[in-house]
Design a protein around this nucleic acid. Sequence first.
DNA 1: TAATTTATCACGGTTTTCCGTGAAAACAAA
DNA 2: TTTGTTTTCACGGAAAACCGTGATAAATTA
Lengths: 215, 215
Amino acid sequence: MNTPFSIIIADDHSMFLDGLTSILAEEPSINIVLTAKTGTQVLKYLRINTEEKIDLVITDINMPEMDGVELNAAIKEEFPKIKTLVVSMLEDAKKIKTLTEANANGYISKNAEKTELLKAIKSILDGQNYFSPRIKQVLMEAMFSEKSEPEIALSKRETEVLKLIAQEFTTQEIADQLFLSKHTIESYRKNLISKLGVRNLAGLTRYAVEKGMLD
Amino acid sequence: MNTPFSIIIADDHSMFLDGLTSILAEEPSINIVLTAKTGTQVLKYLRINTEEKIDLVITDINMPEMDGVELNAAIKEEFPKIKTLVVSMLEDAKKIKTLTEANANGYISKNAEKTELLKAIKSILDGQNYFSPRIKQVLMEAMFSEKSEPEIALSKRETEVLKLIAQEFTTQEIADQLFLSKHTIESYRKNLISKLGVRNLAGLTRYAVEKGMLD
DNA sequence: TAATTTATCACGGTTTTCCGTGAAAACAAA
DNA sequence: TTTGTTTTCACGGAAAACCGTGATAAATTA
């Protein structure tokens, strides 16, 4: 029998962390060296224990302080030999794309079965990447839908003005706040309306709220 | 030693379900008789296996088909002897309140530690309800904040008009659609603005979007 | 360097919203 | 049955938003 693989698990939900640990503790070939609730904890550990050979880091995406996307990037930057497997609640195409670009070795959903989790871990430890069929599909769909919805790019100022508009400030008030002419703000308003393809203030506000630009 | 307690676990995320099962499988006093991904599965099982004595159902809130809130209500209705423990990602005051009103026996967050989970289970099987300090706090805050924010009640027509306003229709257009005078719609607009405590169309739109009145 | 985008400003005219101040009829609740 | 709420309608004036049609300078990008 070979020496077991050393892995680290990061997830901010204790119960999920404990659950995952329980599942993997049953595997004789796996040795859990650390469980953490934030990405920073993981990084700190890796930086201190540089002599210890870690094979795999399993991480959630949504975590406080440093999320899974950032953690993955940091690991690939500082410790390129360590493999990463992202386990997430959401099937967010953009995040998955970012992760693939940052060379994450795998991505599975929390909807995935235990057997799929083990399969993913085995594949990755074996040197292969693992992205579940479901995830591949989401990625593909994102590729195509991306073209149909061409991602409207707003400049810094436009974003700033839009936020204020959606916060119920009038053109004059925004002009005063930003020390600009009210004509300028009117221009932005017009551009935003045509850029975003909406009809009026209501449309602008909806856009801002739905894109999570407020708060 | 007494006979072990029989419990059912419901959660739509396989991995969490497996994790929880792993954790509880280590407990000799606990016997997991079923794991399910929807509330309907649980109910179906209970209705068929009426002779089997089930002590506790552990359920997530967010599930397809029948969520945890509905499942809890149904269990308390049909099988009042069965205890329920809700385990959820979110600390949503309203849902917690609904659950307490529907006599759920416990509520803990997925952020809770394994020890707290076990404590909650033991308490409930012992005949006591368990709501974590964190949850109690959220509930209290909700009670108070509820008074400061007195739940604005909109009439049917007001809701209808607000939706259309937020969908970028002008007063005249709305009047035409509803076969009403434009003065009427203007009245609604004014009332909505003062009722909701906002300043203008942007505020109305934000309210509508944030309350999920569209789509 | 040339071309493009971004940020800024201007004006007149039209439409829409906003505000105050009503009021009448229908309906529900106390 | 009186009181309150909802739904409906009206007018005039002020304020703001919307539309078209510009322009200049700075910053970025190709």
